[in-house]
Amino acid sequence: ELSWTAEAEKMLGKVPFFVRKKVRKNTDNYAREIGEPVVTADVFRKAKEHLG
């Protein structure tokens, strides 16, 4: 699991709890794919757009 900024964690907190774990995993995987060592708010937004 990658490191997350406080802002990205806050955004994740707005995701319904029953899918939060999956969203975190998918976002981590997306960040790795694009070469990001940390999940930022920008990476979170891009993952959301990319993953739907």
Rank of each mutant, 00 (worst) to 15 (best):
E1G: 13
E1W: 13
L2R: 06
L2P: 08
L2G: 04
S3I: 14
S3H: 13
S3C: 11
W4D: 00
W4L: 01
W4I: 00
W4E: 00
T5E: 05
T5N: 05
T5I: 02
A6N: 09
A6V: 12
E7A: 09
E7P: 05
E7N: 05
E7R: 07
A8S: 04
E9T: 09
E9F: 09
K10W: 12
K10G: 09
K10I: 12
K10S: 10
M11D: 04
M11Y: 05
M11W: 05
L12Q: 01
L12I: 05
G13W: 11
G13C: 13
G13P: 05
K14P: 03
K14Y: 08
K14H: 08
K14W: 07
K14N: 10
V15Q: 05
V15C: 09
V15K: 03
P16D: 05
P16C: 09
P16H: 08
P16Q: 05
P16T: 04
F17V: 09
F18I: 10
F18K: 12
V19M: 15
V19C: 15
V19G: 08
V19T: 08
V19E: 13
R20I: 04
R20D: 01
R20F: 02
R20Q: 06
R20L: 04
R20N: 02
K21R: 13
K21G: 13
K21W: 14
K21Y: 11
K22P: 04
K22F: 14
K22G: 07
K22R: 14
K22T: 12
V23W: 11
V23E: 03
V23C: 07
V23T: 07
V23H: 05
R24N: 02
R24W: 04
K25S: 10
K25T: 13
K25M: 14
K25C: 08
K25I: 14
N26E: 15
N26Q: 15
N26R: 13
N26D: 15
N26S: 11
T27Q: 01
T27K: 02
T27P: 00
T27L: 06
T27D: 00
T27I: 15
D28M: 09
D28L: 05
D28C: 05
D28S: 07
N29F: 09
N29Q: 14
N29A: 14
N29V: 09
N29D: 13
Y30H: 04
Y30Q: 01
Y30R: 02
Y30P: 00
Y30G: 00
A31Y: 00
A31P: 00
A31S: 05
R32A: 06
R32F: 06
R32T: 06
R32I: 08
R32W: 06
R32C: 05
R32L: 08
E33D: 10
E33P: 01
E33F: 12
E33K: 11
I34L: 10
I34C: 08
I34Q: 10
I34W: 09
I34P: 01
I34V: 10
G35K: 06
G35Y: 04
E36H: 07
E36K: 05
P37A: 13
P37T: 14
P37G: 09
P37C: 11
P37E: 11
V38E: 07
V38D: 03
V38G: 03
V38P: 00
V39L: 02
T40K: 02
T40Q: 02
T40C: 03
T40S: 06
A41W: 04
A41D: 05
D42E: 14
D42S: 08
D42I: 07
D42F: 06
D42P: 05
D42M: 07
D42K: 07
V43M: 04
V43L: 08
V43I: 12
V43W: 02
F44I: 03
F44Y: 10
F44Q: 01
F44D: 00
F44E: 00
R45G: 05
R45E: 08
R45H: 07
R45P: 01
R45F: 08
R45D: 05
R45S: 07
K46E: 08
K46Q: 11
K46V: 05
K46S: 08
A47H: 06
A47C: 06
A47K: 02
A47T: 04
K48E: 09
K48H: 12
K48G: 09
E49P: 06
E49W: 10
H50L: 11
H50T: 08
H50Y: 13
H50E: 07
L51D: 07
L51M: 14
L51T: 09
L51E: 07
L51S: 09
G52S: 13
G52T: 13
